[in-house]
Amino acid sequence: MSTSPASDRHIQLNPFGQLRHFLSIDGLDRNLLTEILDTADSFIEVGERSIKKVPLLRGRTVVNLFFEASTRTRSTFELAAKRLSADVLNLDISTSATSKGESLSDTLLNLEAMASDMFVVRHAQSGAPHFIAQSVTPGVAIINAGDGRHAHPTQAMLDMLTIRQHKGRFEGLVVAIVGDILHSRVARSQVRALLTLGAEEVRIVGPNTLLPRDAETLGVKIHNDMRSGLRDADVVIMLRLQRERMEGALLPSEREFYRQYGLTTEKLAYARPDAIVMHPGPINRGVEIESAVADGPQSVILNQVTNGIAVRMAVMSMAMSGQLAERQAAAETQASK
């Protein structure tokens, strides 16, 4: 289920250049990513109200279709949809008809028959959300909540929002992404978003066994040494060791990984004094990061969680708006014939 930036752009955007699906950062330009960030910024204050609701998706039905376990992503998507006034259905795949042998296509057809307007999809197989976007009835929006090792675009965008809030810009920034790059769909989306938004330098830092084979083609600088990788960095993004995706012995031990690549107060000192520390979660304390850093003054990890709701509200509202604009244009064209 491989995809290209060109095909991503074609399937994700309607004829007017608006989002119809949000599947990947690939194929999206700087203006559109900035529009997502600006829209998310406008939703930040909704979470500060006593009544945390806006009517943008009133009367719409959003289905959370999670084929992989999730806490943060699923709950923030659910909150985002409810704050947009949508009706939300959380489908438990482990007890659904899919687990009894029903095909994914048949499951989708049945959900569409219930007048669903949007599917939020997390799947272990790379490209699954693209397949669904190509299969569903026109007018149903698909949001990728993480697929295999391929992409996690809403996580990348909430990270971009967090960076912009704290740094005010992307130009001139040096960003170090540290840890299990090989298995991280988050890292791939982060790299694409950072380079599209104008970051000066993106570094990936980790042992060769945890770096992708195509690392040199990603437009990043590769570091196997933590100290050189962090030197003068403005942003440090730590990643979780994804043992559930590893095949074979890629690490001598978690203790050895922490010694070389865990973020400690001492190692953080190589970054700029005002560097921010990020982590998409869940955090393995004492493996990727020490508690003194995770809970310290440079950590913006909880800000990331808060921003996740606003970014997901932005993406869902923009995709639904793009679907409606395309549907209306098609209806007007048909009426004029």
Rank of each mutant, 00 (worst) to 15 (best):
P5K: 04
S7P: 04
P15W: 04
Q18T: 05
H21G: 09
I25E: 01
L28Q: 12
R30M: 06
N31V: 14
L37A: 00
D38I: 09
E45F: 06
K53N: 07
L56H: 09
L56K: 07
G59F: 08
V63D: 05
S70N: 01
T73A: 00
L84R: 13
A86N: 09
S99V: 11
S99M: 12
L108E: 10
A115M: 14
M118T: 12
V121P: 04
A128M: 08
P129E: 08
I132T: 00
S135H: 10
T137C: 12
I142K: 05
I143Q: 01
A145E: 00
G146N: 04
D147L: 04
G148Y: 10
A151E: 13
T154L: 02
R164I: 05
F170Q: 12
F170H: 09
E171N: 04
I177P: 10
H183D: 10
A187M: 06
L194P: 04
E200S: 13
R203D: 03
G219A: 09
V220S: 11
K221I: 02
H223P: 00
R231H: 10
M238V: 01
R240Q: 05
S253F: 10
F257R: 03
T264M: 13
E266V: 05
K267P: 07
L268A: 09
I276E: 05
G281Y: 08
G281S: 14
N284I: 14
S291C: 12
A292M: 09
L302M: 11
N303R: 15
N307A: 04
V311G: 08
S321H: 14
L324K: 15
R327T: 13
Q328P: 14
A335G: 07
